[in-house]
Nucleic acid binder design. Structure first.
Lengths: 138, 138
DNA sequence: ATGCTAATGATAGTCATTATCACTATCAGT
DNA sequence: ACTGATAGTGATAATGACTATCATTAGCAT
């Protein structure tokens, strides 16, 4: 049922090629620049389909949804509210405790999302830099 | 600067009166029914102001933001993707490990959000009930 | 009581995402 | 390879949650 199209291949390739956390608009812009423009609606549908197929993963950040490549290992995110950057981390013990909580509550956990909001090292140590004020807030 | 108005008192009272996780629309509807109608824009501003003042808390769920009363203790949420219900839980060890991760990364954590998505006990054991299909998906 | 200014509320606007729809492309079965 | 069923595309309209605007109202510091 899920068809392989040039548009989806382009989207998938771009996401798998880097550690960037893309949102639909950024991805569409990048595809235009690389000469393989894809309609914005198709980008949204493609991202949704690829996520459904387990080929990419997503992080819901406020009103925006960002997509990233799939790692071998699940990870969570540190979100800098100054510059919008996402940093990844892995903490197996947290994962284990989450599963344990769900188990205790009779809750069949399918998924989870852990976001730590705050100021990243770079922003915390260079906040005299006025340029950073232009960074997107979350 | 933050003024006390009947509208905000009504909003605060409603949220503090129950364990319900309200969103702006639901709250506005409830206020209309209780005879103290408040403009939808005022509800949004009131919720934001009350959260800023530390009188209520919020959980960002997909595209919607829900508000809840402040407990003595921080808690996280189990989100049922079948019926949309929110269940709360506390796991101090997870909290501690989060702080430790941030510390190690040189990240100044200000806040966090942990959501466990899945099927709650009620939905998991009564999914033959067709009515549940009408439940709002997250 | 008075005035400064925050708050209200009706409504218009914003913005990310989804639906629509005519058309195109994939792919399974011949 | 041909072809039909149907999934995908893309331009654009629609949706829906939230925010801005602005004239008017109302806390609250003095």
């Amino acid at each position: 049922m899920l068809r392989v199209t040039p548009q989806r291949q382009a989207i998938l390739a771009l996401i798998n090629r880097s550690n960037v956390h893309w949102d639909a608009e950024e991805l569409a812009r990048e595809l235009v620049q690389s000469g393989q423009a894809v309609g914005i609606a198709t980008v949204y549908r493609g991202l949704s389909a690829l996520e459904g197929a387990g080929l990419i993963a997503s992080v819901q950040l406020g009103d925006r949804k960002r997509y990233e490549r799939i790692d071998k290992s699940h990870h969570d995110h540190l979100v800098c509210t100054e510059c919008g950057s996402l940093e990844e981390f892995v903490q197996p013990e947290i994962e284990r405790l989450q599963a344990q909580v769900a188990e205790e509550k009779g809750f069949r956990m399918l998924n989870h999302q852990l976001l730590l909001f705050g100021i990243c090292y770079a922003c915390d140590n260079h906040d005299s830099n006025q340029d950073l004020d232009k960074g997107k807030k979350i």
